[in-house]
Amino acid sequence: MRRNESLIHIAAFLLVIGLSAVLYAVFTDTRPGLKALDASLKERVSYHYLLKTAGNPAQPAERKVTVGKSGYEDGSANIVTAIVVDYRALDTLGEVLVLFAASAGVGLLMSKRKRKIETEASPIVTTAVPMIMLFAVVVGLYIIFHGHLSPGGGFPGGAIIASAYMIQFLAFRKKFSGNLFKILESLAGLGILGMGLAGLYTEGSFLANFLPTGELGAVFSAAGIMILYALIGIKVASELSSIIGHFIGEK
Protein backbone atom coordinates (compact mmCIF):
# COMPACT_ATOMS: atom_id res chain seq x y z
CA MET A 1 0.00 0.00 0.00
CA ARG A 2 2.81 2.39 0.85
CA ARG A 3 4.37 1.67 -2.54
CA ASN A 4 1.44 3.23 -4.37
CA GLU A 5 1.31 6.39 -2.27
CA SER A 6 3.50 8.62 -4.44
CA LEU A 7 1.70 7.30 -7.51
CA ILE A 8 -1.63 8.50 -6.04
CA HIS A 9 -0.12 11.92 -5.33
CA ILE A 10 1.20 12.25 -8.88
CA ALA A 11 -2.14 11.16 -10.38
CA ALA A 12 -4.07 13.65 -8.26
CA PHE A 13 -1.66 16.43 -9.18
CA LEU A 14 -2.01 15.62 -12.88
CA LEU A 15 -5.81 15.64 -12.54
CA VAL A 16 -5.72 19.06 -10.89
CA ILE A 17 -3.38 20.39 -13.59
CA GLY A 18 -5.71 19.10 -16.32
CA LEU A 19 -8.77 20.71 -14.73
CA SER A 20 -6.88 23.98 -14.38
CA ALA A 21 -5.93 23.86 -18.08
CA VAL A 22 -9.59 23.36 -19.08
CA LEU A 23 -10.67 26.30 -16.91
CA TYR A 24 -7.86 28.48 -18.33
CA ALA A 25 -9.07 27.68 -21.83
CA VAL A 26 -12.62 28.65 -20.84
CA PHE A 27 -11.64 31.98 -19.35
CA THR A 28 -9.22 33.11 -22.08
CA ASP A 29 -11.42 32.15 -25.01
CA THR A 30 -11.23 34.78 -27.79
CA ARG A 31 -13.35 33.14 -30.48
CA PRO A 32 -16.64 34.83 -31.50
CA GLY A 33 -19.75 34.13 -29.45
CA LEU A 34 -21.11 34.74 -25.99
CA LYS A 35 -18.49 34.17 -23.26
CA ALA A 36 -18.95 32.96 -19.72
CA LEU A 37 -18.30 36.38 -18.24
CA ASP A 38 -19.88 38.96 -20.55
CA ALA A 39 -23.62 38.35 -20.28
CA SER A 40 -25.21 41.69 -19.41
CA LEU A 41 -27.89 42.03 -16.79
CA LYS A 42 -30.65 42.31 -19.39
CA GLU A 43 -29.91 38.80 -20.64
CA ARG A 44 -29.99 37.20 -17.22
CA VAL A 45 -32.77 35.60 -15.20
CA SER A 46 -32.69 38.28 -12.52
CA TYR A 47 -33.72 41.06 -14.93
CA HIS A 48 -37.39 40.80 -13.96
CA TYR A 49 -36.54 40.20 -10.31
CA LEU A 50 -34.67 43.52 -10.26
CA LEU A 51 -37.51 45.46 -11.88
CA LYS A 52 -40.17 43.60 -9.82
CA THR A 53 -42.11 42.63 -12.96
CA ALA A 54 -41.86 38.84 -12.81
CA GLY A 55 -45.63 38.38 -12.55
CA ASN A 56 -46.32 40.55 -15.62
CA PRO A 57 -43.33 40.42 -18.02
CA ALA A 58 -44.94 42.62 -20.65
CA GLN A 59 -44.54 45.81 -18.59
CA PRO A 60 -42.24 48.59 -19.88
CA ALA A 61 -38.59 47.78 -19.45
CA GLU A 62 -36.97 50.88 -17.93
CA ARG A 63 -39.29 51.23 -14.95
CA LYS A 64 -37.55 52.76 -11.95
CA VAL A 65 -37.99 51.19 -8.52
CA THR A 66 -37.73 53.77 -5.73
CA VAL A 67 -38.18 53.94 -1.99
CA GLY A 68 -41.49 55.21 -0.61
CA LYS A 69 -43.81 54.11 -3.36
CA SER A 70 -46.32 51.34 -2.94
CA GLY A 71 -48.01 48.97 -5.32
CA TYR A 72 -45.09 46.81 -6.37
CA GLU A 73 -45.66 43.11 -6.56
CA ASP A 74 -43.03 42.59 -3.88
CA GLY A 75 -42.49 45.02 -1.01
CA SER A 76 -38.97 44.06 -0.01
CA ALA A 77 -36.19 46.63 -0.42
CA ASN A 78 -33.53 43.92 -0.21
CA ILE A 79 -33.76 42.08 -3.52
CA VAL A 80 -31.91 38.98 -2.27
CA THR A 81 -34.60 38.54 0.38
CA ALA A 82 -37.26 39.01 -2.28
CA ILE A 83 -35.73 36.17 -4.32
CA VAL A 84 -35.16 33.82 -1.37
CA VAL A 85 -38.55 34.18 0.29
CA ASP A 86 -40.91 35.20 -2.51
CA TYR A 87 -39.80 34.37 -6.06
CA ARG A 88 -37.95 31.16 -5.22
CA ALA A 89 -39.65 30.21 -1.96
CA LEU A 90 -40.06 26.58 -3.03
CA ASP A 91 -36.25 26.27 -3.12
CA THR A 92 -36.11 27.58 0.43
CA LEU A 93 -38.78 25.10 1.54
CA GLY A 94 -36.70 22.23 0.13
CA GLU A 95 -33.57 23.62 1.79
CA VAL A 96 -35.26 23.73 5.19
CA LEU A 97 -36.38 20.14 4.57
CA VAL A 98 -32.76 19.07 3.88
CA LEU A 99 -31.64 20.77 7.09
CA PHE A 100 -34.39 18.93 9.00
CA ALA A 101 -33.23 15.62 7.50
CA ALA A 102 -29.62 16.33 8.55
CA SER A 103 -30.73 17.24 12.08
CA ALA A 104 -32.83 14.07 12.35
CA GLY A 105 -29.92 11.97 11.09
CA VAL A 106 -27.56 13.46 13.68
CA GLY A 107 -30.11 12.72 16.40
CA LEU A 108 -30.50 9.14 15.17
CA LEU A 109 -26.81 8.28 14.85
CA MET A 110 -25.24 10.19 17.73
CA SER A 111 -24.93 8.21 20.98
CA LYS A 112 -24.75 9.76 24.41
CA ARG A 113 -21.48 9.82 26.31
CA LYS A 114 -20.67 9.46 29.97
CA ARG A 115 -20.19 12.56 32.06
CA LYS A 116 -16.58 13.22 32.95
CA ILE A 117 -15.36 15.10 36.01
CA GLU A 118 -15.27 18.72 35.01
CA THR A 119 -14.11 21.89 36.69
CA GLU A 120 -16.60 24.68 37.32
CA ALA A 121 -16.39 27.83 35.22
CA SER A 122 -14.82 30.84 36.93
CA PRO A 123 -17.05 33.68 38.27
CA ILE A 124 -15.81 36.05 35.58
CA VAL A 125 -17.16 33.74 32.88
CA THR A 126 -20.45 33.07 34.62
CA THR A 127 -21.01 36.82 35.10
CA ALA A 128 -20.09 37.87 31.58
CA VAL A 129 -21.79 35.13 29.59
CA PRO A 130 -25.45 36.15 30.33
CA MET A 131 -24.76 39.67 29.07
CA ILE A 132 -23.08 38.38 25.91
CA MET A 133 -25.99 35.97 25.42
CA LEU A 134 -28.51 38.80 25.76
CA PHE A 135 -26.67 40.86 23.13
CA ALA A 136 -26.40 37.89 20.79
CA VAL A 137 -30.12 37.08 21.04
CA VAL A 138 -31.09 40.74 20.49
CA VAL A 139 -28.79 41.01 17.45
CA GLY A 140 -30.20 37.76 16.07
CA LEU A 141 -33.80 38.95 16.44
CA TYR A 142 -32.90 42.32 14.86
CA ILE A 143 -31.29 40.57 11.89
CA ILE A 144 -34.31 38.29 11.47
CA PHE A 145 -36.94 41.05 11.60
CA HIS A 146 -35.04 43.49 9.35
CA GLY A 147 -34.37 40.91 6.65
CA HIS A 148 -36.41 42.84 4.08
CA LEU A 149 -34.56 46.15 4.69
CA SER A 150 -30.94 45.33 5.42
CA PRO A 151 -28.53 42.43 4.80
CA GLY A 152 -29.37 39.37 6.84
CA GLY A 153 -32.53 37.42 7.40
CA GLY A 154 -33.66 34.15 8.84
CA PHE A 155 -30.57 32.03 8.15
CA PRO A 156 -27.80 34.17 9.74
CA GLY A 157 -30.14 35.34 12.54
CA GLY A 158 -31.03 31.77 13.43
CA ALA A 159 -27.35 30.82 13.39
CA ILE A 160 -26.50 33.72 15.74
CA ILE A 161 -29.22 32.61 18.19
CA ALA A 162 -27.89 29.04 17.99
CA SER A 163 -24.37 30.27 18.81
CA ALA A 164 -25.84 32.09 21.84
CA TYR A 165 -27.16 28.69 22.98
CA MET A 166 -23.67 27.26 22.40
CA ILE A 167 -22.02 29.95 24.58
CA GLN A 168 -24.60 29.30 27.31
CA PHE A 169 -23.75 25.64 27.30
CA LEU A 170 -19.99 26.23 27.46
CA ALA A 171 -20.36 28.39 30.59
CA PHE A 172 -23.16 26.73 32.59
CA ARG A 173 -23.27 23.13 31.29
CA LYS A 174 -27.05 23.29 31.20
CA LYS A 175 -29.01 21.59 28.48
CA PHE A 176 -32.58 22.45 27.61
CA SER A 177 -34.90 19.53 27.07
CA GLY A 178 -34.99 18.26 23.52
CA ASN A 179 -38.78 18.47 23.38
CA LEU A 180 -38.69 22.29 23.36
CA PHE A 181 -36.72 22.35 20.13
CA LYS A 182 -38.89 19.66 18.58
CA ILE A 183 -42.11 21.56 19.38
CA LEU A 184 -40.75 24.91 18.15
CA GLU A 185 -39.40 23.37 14.96
CA SER A 186 -42.63 21.49 14.17
CA LEU A 187 -44.74 24.60 14.78
CA ALA A 188 -42.51 26.68 12.47
CA GLY A 189 -42.64 24.01 9.76
CA LEU A 190 -46.42 23.81 10.01
CA GLY A 191 -46.55 27.62 9.81
CA ILE A 192 -44.54 27.64 6.59
CA LEU A 193 -46.82 24.99 5.09
CA GLY A 194 -49.89 26.94 6.24
CA MET A 195 -48.59 30.12 4.58
CA GLY A 196 -48.00 28.15 1.37
CA LEU A 197 -51.50 26.67 1.40
CA ALA A 198 -53.05 30.06 2.13
CA GLY A 199 -51.22 31.47 -0.91
CA LEU A 200 -52.51 28.52 -2.95
CA TYR A 201 -56.08 29.23 -1.80
CA THR A 202 -56.09 33.00 -2.35
CA GLU A 203 -53.65 33.64 -5.23
CA GLY A 204 -53.67 30.34 -7.03
CA SER A 205 -50.05 29.22 -6.60
CA PHE A 206 -48.18 27.58 -3.74
CA LEU A 207 -46.31 30.00 -1.42
CA ALA A 208 -47.62 33.03 -3.30
CA ASN A 209 -47.48 36.39 -1.54
CA PHE A 210 -51.05 37.16 -0.47
CA LEU A 211 -50.58 39.76 2.28
CA PRO A 212 -50.39 43.53 1.52
CA THR A 213 -46.93 44.71 0.46
CA GLY A 214 -47.08 48.29 1.80
CA GLU A 215 -44.61 51.07 1.07
CA LEU A 216 -41.20 50.04 -0.18
CA GLY A 217 -38.61 50.70 2.53
CA ALA A 218 -40.92 51.13 5.53
CA VAL A 219 -40.25 49.06 8.65
CA PHE A 220 -43.66 47.39 8.59
CA SER A 221 -43.86 46.51 4.92
CA ALA A 222 -43.93 43.22 3.05
CA ALA A 223 -45.95 41.42 5.72
CA GLY A 224 -45.80 38.02 4.03
CA ILE A 225 -42.01 38.15 3.70
CA MET A 226 -41.62 39.21 7.34
CA ILE A 227 -43.77 36.34 8.65
CA LEU A 228 -42.15 33.71 6.44
CA TYR A 229 -38.62 34.83 7.31
CA ALA A 230 -39.45 34.85 11.04
CA LEU A 231 -40.75 31.26 10.76
CA ILE A 232 -37.61 30.23 8.84
CA GLY A 233 -35.47 31.90 11.52
CA ILE A 234 -37.20 29.98 14.32
CA LYS A 235 -36.83 26.72 12.41
CA VAL A 236 -33.12 27.23 11.61
CA ALA A 237 -32.32 28.33 15.18
CA SER A 238 -34.04 25.32 16.77
CA GLU A 239 -32.52 22.85 14.31
CA LEU A 240 -28.98 24.16 14.73
CA SER A 241 -29.40 24.24 18.54
CA SER A 242 -30.61 20.65 18.42
CA ILE A 243 -27.52 19.62 16.36
CA ILE A 244 -25.23 21.41 18.84
CA GLY A 245 -27.00 19.74 21.77
CA HIS A 246 -26.51 16.33 20.20
CA PHE A 247 -22.82 16.99 19.60
CA ILE A 248 -22.31 18.00 23.23
CA GLY A 249 -24.64 15.18 24.23
CA GLU A 250 -24.13 14.43 27.93
CA LYS A 251 -26.26 12.17 30.02
Binding site: V80, V84, V98, S103, F155
Partner: peptide, 21 residues
Protein backbone atom coordinates in the same frame (compact mmCIF):
# COMPACT_ATOMS: atom_id res chain seq x y z
CA UNK B 1 -26.72 40.08 -10.05
CA UNK B 2 -28.66 39.05 -6.90
CA UNK B 3 -29.64 35.53 -8.00
CA UNK B 4 -26.26 33.84 -7.16
CA UNK B 5 -26.39 35.45 -3.71
CA UNK B 6 -29.75 33.78 -3.03
CA UNK B 7 -28.51 30.39 -4.24
CA UNK B 8 -25.28 30.57 -2.19
CA UNK B 9 -27.22 31.64 0.92
CA UNK B 10 -29.05 28.30 0.95
CA UNK B 11 -25.92 26.36 -0.04
CA UNK B 12 -23.97 27.51 3.04
CA UNK B 13 -26.69 26.35 5.46
CA UNK B 14 -27.00 22.95 3.72
CA UNK B 15 -23.21 22.63 3.92
CA UNK B 16 -23.33 22.93 7.71
CA UNK B 17 -26.03 20.23 7.93
CA UNK B 18 -24.17 17.73 5.75
CA UNK B 19 -20.89 18.41 7.60
CA UNK B 20 -22.60 17.67 10.93
CA UNK B 21 -23.98 14.38 9.56
Amino acid sequence: DPLPHALVLTSIVIGLGTTAL
